[in-house]
Amino acid sequence: MPVISLQAIPMEHGLLLAAILFILGMVGVLTRRNIIFVLMSLEIMLNAVALAFVVGGARWAAADGQIMFLMIISLAAAEVAVGLGLVLQLFNRFKTLDLDILSKMKG
């Protein structure tokens, strides 16, 4: 007895949402100079990709989409852990979160 009758949603709408979120995340990465914002924007992009997988899983009524979502979520967790560790270390060393100053890799 489903409480809400599940209506089919066009797959392209779900993918469209994923695309919009991805692009927003990308704009964030390209624009922000604060390293925390950049990390957050990366999360947005990862999340958008995960959404695309779930939409795909719903299209084929298969569990695989959600499994991919699980993988992505564990990837994001690991990435955030390492990334935030790096942020702490950088802040200790350089007393700044400005990415433009952290340019020791300049050729």
Binding site: A8, P10, E12, F22, W60, A63
Partner: peptide
């Protein structure tokens, strides 16, 4: 991206894929 996505016409299928299905696949 919009151009590419709008080319794929398909409906998502109604139905729940619950934790059990996911766990079995996992």
């Amino acid at each position: 991206l919009v151009v590419m996505i709008s080319g794929a016409k398909a409906q998502t299928q109604a139905g729940v894929i619950n934790a059990k299905d996911v766990g079995i696949a996992l």
